[in-house]
Design a binder for these strands. Structure first.
Lengths: 228, 228, 228, 228
DNA sequence: GATGAATGAGGTTTCATTCAT
DNA sequence: AATGAATGAAACCTCATTCAT
């Protein structure tokens, strides 16, 4: 993300220690916020979890709101990276899906991996915190959530457009198709994972992915009329 | 001193009974919790919003956690009632959908109305609070969320089973079909309403419902094999 | 305990029910005050212990301070009655103590019985509450404590004066003798009963009484020079 | 060398300012508890009396109960120190009491000084608080009261044993003699100082001490049998 | 006269935040 | 730059007390 060159890099001093401390604070903050919620979380606990003193937290991040914002953004960036990697693999692998079975298998695999990303404990925590504090921190919608899902869906939509041009998919609105593909994947997980409070078995994730892809391909895949 | 009319027969704050006050408190509590979150909401503000004194809140609901639980359950019951009413209408109207266009129109209508329910401001607030506090109040999963969505999806699944028997739909797993129908409806709303922080126009809701039903019927409706 | 006269059916004038209720309230108040202290005791608990509603307590006793005063006075009167009865018995029996052994036995018996009174659980509670709240309720010193101990010591002093006139005791200051007699009795009980928090066995009480009388008679009794 | 700036070591090497503040808090706490009782005393007032902010009290002592415990223990230690000093002087001086008049004078002096200790305003406050809260804080019996009085009485008993061996006193049970010596001293002060709410003149304290010693020596001193 | 319901005031405790070291 | 100590503000909750029935 921000590849800001640290101003101290040249010297023999240890800016790395400072950066590490900052990361430790952000990580601890996310952990505690995730466990207790923004309002109930207290800076003393975060500092303890990070292994630093309380004023150090303030020295690094300013105040609690800023701390929350940065912790959320860091967690969001991490989650986005994972999802984008999955879609990037789709780009690479999916290009070779040249028959119906292969396309289905590829989509299933992508779906399954996306589910793994979004069913990760920290992803659920991120989502819960987002839902919880969107009223108080509306800017997180963009900085944490919007850009991320948007980019992933855009990447998927791109792929679907390519597949449509290749005659492997039928959709006049790839963005909508991607939107629905996502909905079919993540929607059923809400209930099954009990809002992320219960781990979902790989088998169940695979089943949801399979069902989603089956429905998706029935709607948008090469119909029987085409295969005829 | 003047002859002031008896305060309970005239005037604004007429005490019309204990139940009214309890409802006022629960309503105010939900409003404030929705606005500020559980942790940030303070009982003083809730009491003020309800027009009662602070101890009255404690007399009625015990403590803040109980207050939250009951406010959530009341809001959940209200939301469930609305959604069930929509599905109940589907039961009545849907029975007459005897051709493809009619079925599509009926499903669209039901989907649209379900979206109206779940895009209601208070429904979004309920969902946000649920997400936010599921860690601290896991029992709300059942008492507020689980039973509700389960019952609505079950009702839908029943309907889909009947339609399948009537040859209007093809699905071997009506529960899964209902699950996906819901996902196609509500999934796209998350982004479009920005997690419920922005009202969604009727037109957009209709469009989402139409797209959901189109995809759903392509997957589960009478296929081209039937028309052939 | 309570002579049952149903207050509802007693006809026109049923002051008995009201008086019983007042007694119940005072008794409950003393119980709760003794258990929790004046500051921590709360009127709701007292009302519950008395089996009446909270406003009834206020109807009968006015406010918490008054309630405390009256409960203390009632308990003080009860304790005083018991102690005076013991001394009264001394008057009757002690008059016949005409030799050294008989006098010693009589004083021991009186001492033992006075110890029983002042080691009663409620007596200790009374003393503790008095100590505790003498700053806030200085008038209780007279209305509860002063009069009581004063009267008992006066009665003892009277007796000692008579015995001195009869040549059975030697003291120029009967009041001081009574004061010290009391001190020798009750002083050692403080530690032995751990400020009244642990019951003292009869054997120990008798031992303390015996030791007190032995010392007392060595100081004030007929000396060996006299018996010689 | 100055090992001053060792921020890690807390407790023994704590900075002077912190210890002073802790003492100020404990002193203020005892003052306020003594004035208002445990239940009525409020931490805000204690903090104000100590000249610190309310949270500082909590930082140092944890909560109100702990604050009370420590304030009581500090006051108890102070009182014990004073009394032990008096008895220690007895040890030094008493050894030279080689005739009846000197013994009497010495005991009177010790008694008088012990009375000064136990009639000190803060000693009465300590006793009142102990009586008042022994139900809620039973451990104070040992940590504040028991050890103290026990040690003083033991020291006295030791002295009495030595005097008995020297033929200056007659008692087979020095512990009991010390117990009664104390009772004769402190018992009469309860009423005379009105439970410690009224200062007692030195003259009255001397009179009580003299009377106590007179009675004590009549009972345990060198009797006429010896002089015969 | 007795009671359920309501309230103003105030208690303990914790928190986010800032100095002084 | 990092920390122990301190603080103003405010939260939850309880209490003594009073109406209206």
């Amino acid at each position: 993300m921000s590849e800001v060159s640290s101003p101290q890099t040249a010297g023999a001093g240890a800016p790395r220690g400072r950066i590490d401390k900052r990361h430790a604070i952000l990580g601890a903050a996310f952990t505690v916020f995730a466990r207790e919620g923004y309002g109930q979380a207290c800076v003393r606990v975060i500092a303890a979890e990070a292994g630093v003193a309380k004023p150090t937290v303030y020295n690094h991040l300013g105040d609690k709101e800023n701390l929350f914002r940065h912790a959320m953004e860091a967690a969001g960036a991490r989650a986005l990276t994972a999802s984008l990697a999955v879609v990037a693999e789709l780009r690479a692998e999916g290009a070779t899906a040249d028959d119906a079975a292969a396309l289905s298998a590829t989509l299933e695999d992508v779906g399954y991996r996306l589910l793994l990303c979004s069913c990760d404990e920290r992803s659920w925590a991120l989502r819960r915190l987002l839902y919880a504090e969107v009223g108080k921190f509306p800017e997180l919608l963009d900085s944490v959530w919007g850009h991320g899902t948007h980019r992933v869906q855009e990447a998927l939509a791109d792929r679907f457009a390519r597949l449509t041009l290749a005659g492997r998919l039928h959709t006049a609105d790839p963005a909508q198709a991607a939107e629905q593909f996502f909905a079919l994947l993540t929607g059923p997980m809400e209930a099954r994972s009990r809002l992320g409070t219960r781990p979902v078995s790989d088998a169940e994730a695979r089943e949801v992915a399979r069902a989603a892809v089956r429905t998706f391909l029935r709607a948008f895949g090469p119909g029987p009329d085409e295969t005829a």
